[in-house]
Structure formats: structure tokens, C-alpha cells
């Protein structure tokens, strides 16, 4: 279970406060959506969960399975099962996708007390998952994300997620920049990972992603706090009325 308690965070560089007291609980087995206008703190929340040191937590705490993760580095959090699918995945020239995936998988397996996979086991695992997401062998050989289209990069994020088998999946605007077909492929990939042992936090500006990844709960984030929580119908309401009620100005 993910528990966020009174979380305050600011940008380390200039001290600007972005998160102003977030309280949120996502039990295992559930998918929660965070919706909010631009600048509401959605991406900051995602980064703070993953442990990016550009942000400073000034108050509150984050617990994953009862354990505070605030003092853990991003790699330790990953080993504990936290995974952030980036809004803008990074390109790493000179590192083949397979090499990267293998380094990541072996690192988390080692930390989780599992033994490293042999090359054939690893290849088999990745190829099977890649095929489901329409990721070609050729893409796997290429340097990670280099020259990939927006849709290919997002598919690669979901592939990494399914290979690393996290228990807390945070999807940051996975739909941004994708056409409807790409959204479908990516959402199907993410939906496959729904399960009783996994919690999922889907961050999005628009409702349409939630047609594919249907959430158990929807939270509206604005001005650095959760303003409202409801069922999946809340997303549809928002689609009609916009965020004006929560930002205090017309959208």
C-alpha cells in the first residue's frame, strides 16, 4: 500500500513550493488516477515518489508497504518495487536497449535477493514481453530510445516496467504526445500489469487515457493539494467542466 502523508516539497534550486500537503492512499490491487491542470504539481509528485533530488521534501512522508522511502535513493526505491514511467523518456546513445534492460533487471533482482538471469533466460523474457508491445528486435538492438518516435519511447517505458515487475507503478502523462492507436497499445500493456499485488498511480491531464486504464479512484490535484476524490465518473465530469472550479480561474 502506498501512503502519502501531508507531503510538502519544493524545488531544491529556488525553494519554490510545489506540493503543499498531499494526503493519498493507494491500496494494493488498485489503480488510482491523478488529474490536474498544468502546473498543479502532478509531475513533481511523480518525481518525488521516484526520488529525484531536484526536489526537497520539507514536510510529511511517503510509505510504501509500511516503510518510509524518503531516505532511499532512486535505485533503492526501484529495488523496493517503485517504477516511474517518464513523461519524456531519456535517450542514451551508445547503450543498446538490451544492455540497459539487462543491467536494470540484474540490479533489481540482486537487491531483491533473486539470482541473475542467464542470457537465454533474459532474451526469452524480453522478447516475449516486447512482442506483446510491438517492440521489434531491431529496436532492442538500437541504443535506448535514440531515434525512437514518441510512441516507441512510451512503449519502451512500458516494456521496462513489465520486465522489472514493479509493485508500485507511476505513469506520468503516458498519453502525452500519442495518437489514439499508440495510447491503446500502451494502455493495454499497462493494464496487463494490473494485479492484486500491484498498486498503480496514473497521472494524466486528460480523461481519454482513463477509457483504457479504468481507475478505481480519481483524485484531482491542484495548487499542490488533492482537491477532490471520486470514482471514475469524476474524470468524465472534469472533461465537461474543466479544472476552473479547482484553480479558481477560468480554464
Amino acid at each position: 500500500m502506498l501512503e502519502i502523508k501531508n507531503l510538502h516539497a519544493r524545488i531544491a534550486d529556488d525553494g519554490a513550493e510545489i506540493l503543499r500537503g498531499i494526503d493519498l492512499v493507494v491500496p494494493k490491487g488498485e489503480v488510482h488516477a491523478i488529474m490536474g491542470p498544468n502546473g498543479s504539481g502532478k509531475s513533481t509528485l511523480a518525481y518525488v515518489l521516484a526520488g529525484r533530488d531536484d526536489y526537497e521534501v520539507t514536510e510529511g512522508d511517503i510509505f510504501w508497504n509500511g516503510e518510509s522511502i524518503l531516505e532511499m535513493g532512486p535505485d533503492e526505491r526501484a529495488a523496493k518495487g517503485v517504477f516511474l514511467a517518464f513523461q519524456y523518456p531519456m535517450e542514451i546513445p551508445g547503450v543498446a536497449t538490451m544492455t540497459f534492460l539487462r543491467a536494470a533487471l540484474n540490479a533489481v533482482r540482486k537487491k531483491r535477493g533473486l539470482k541473475e538471469l542467464t542470457t537465454p533466460e533474459f532474451m526469452k523474457l524480453v522478447r516475449a514481453k516486447a512482442a506483446e508491445l510491438g517492440v521489434s528486435d531491431e529496436m532492442l538492438k538500437r541504443p535506448l530510445n535514440v531515434g525512437f518516435s514518441g510512441g516507441e519511447k512510451k512503449r519502451m517505458e512500458i516494456l521496462q516496467m513489465s520486465v522489472l515487475e514493479p509493485t508500485l507503478c507511476v505513469l506520468d502523462e503516458t498519453d502525452s504526445g500519442l495518437d489514439i492507436d499508440a495510447i491503446r497499445i500502451v494502455s493495454e500493456g499497462a493494464t496487463k500489469l494490473r494485479g492484486p499485488d500491484r498498486a498503480m498511480l496514473v497521472i494524466t491531464h486528460y480523461q481519454r487515457l482513463l477509457n483504457y486504464i479504468v481507475p478505481d479512484k480519481v483524485h484531482i490535484l491542484a495548487k499542490g493539494r488533492i482537491q477532490k476524490t471520486g470514482g471514475k465518473e469524476l474524470a468524465l465530469e472534469l472533461e465537461k467542466s474543466g479544472y476552473a472550479d479547482f484553480t479558481g480561474k477560468a480554464a
Binding site: 535513493g73 535505485d75 516511474l84 531519456m90 542514451i92 536494470a104 540490479a107 533489481v108
Partner: peptide, 13 residues
């Protein structure tokens, strides 16, 4: 940013 990306995948610094 790249370092954070790698670490977010579990790769030690």
C-alpha cells in the same frame, strides 16, 4: 537527468 533515469530503473549510481 540521465543518471536519475538509470537509477530510477534500479541501476546503482
Amino acid at each position: 537527468d540521465l543518471l536519475f533515469y538509470c537509477r530510477s530503473r534500479g541501476i546503482p549510481p
